[in-house]
Design a protein around this nucleic acid. Structure first.
Lengths: 134, 134
DNA sequence: AGAGACTACATGCACATGCATCCAATGCAA
DNA sequence: TTGCATTGGATGCATGTGCATGTAGTCTCT
């Protein structure tokens, strides 16, 4: 009926299925745990983490377009996500001085704290779910 | 400010980010390509593929609950996905004879054909996106 | 047989996402 | 300068997803 996969293709498919399984396990558990215990989604946490990393060098915050490529979200999804974080008081949005189209996103004290609180759980989930083989 | 990650934690995070990047790249491209050229989403294709694999042994189709664990979707999402496939004429839903709560999902001719048509592209995308390192 | 617990799947609802589009600010050319 | 294309980000809309629940069929215990 259908042609069979070549060995290379079969390897790719196996690799892809493993990736899908790991991703689903991890993302699902992260979302559930972070959501229940810290009121954060996986992507929200990811964005906070980039902001923390960005803050360590210059403290001005990051531009939305600097964030975008690192979080695998569409520009619109990122915009709304930042909106949610802002409403929750975890980040601030400010106009860029040098380019007034741009938006500087910066962590608030509260945002920094929430990230720090959630981080251990995040690492714990990773060590749980990335270790398993299936 | 925030404590640093231990080396093991840093490794996990790096592994997780790599996984996220690969997943996003691959899933996004698969969805776009399969969608544009074959009218299928990534998950739709995945379900068709399981049905093809299931058909090769016994030709009765698979029960929804046999499909569920293999596609990383909630039961409700899978139910609706099957509904879409059915509406598109790619699968049929039939009551199980032995347990009338259960549903047998079986490929139609058309479903088999669409899967066969899409398969090469699927493999091609995998070989493109899973190979890159970043 | 009958009652109640359980299972398999469907569905109402809320929500996050992507695409297309819109608006404002910038840059570039004449 | 004015005019036009481009860019950064926000928003309307359609869609796919998960959770909670509904409904029908099955199982168990008495």
């Amino acid at each position: 009926m259908a042609e069979l996969d070549s060995p290379e293709e079969a390897g790719l498919v196996a690799q892809w299925r493993d990736l899908l399984a790991r991703h689903a396990r991890t993302a699902c558990l992260l979302d559930r745990e972070l959501g229940e215990k810290h009121g954060l989604g996986m992507s929200e946490f990811e964005v906070l983490e980039r902001l923390v990393e960005g803050c360590e060098s210059g403290d001005k915050g990051l531009r939305v377009q600097e964030l975008a490529p690192t979080v695998h979200l569409s520009q619109s999804a990122l915009s709304r996500l930042i909106g949610r974080l802002e409403k929750a008081g975890l980040v601030t949005r400010a106009m860029c001085a040098d380019d007034r189209r741009g938006i500087q996103v910066a962590l608030t004290e509260e945002g920094c704290r929430r990230y720090a609180e959630a981080r251990a759980l995040h690492r714990e989930v990773l060590s749980l779910t990335l270790a398993e083989e299936p």
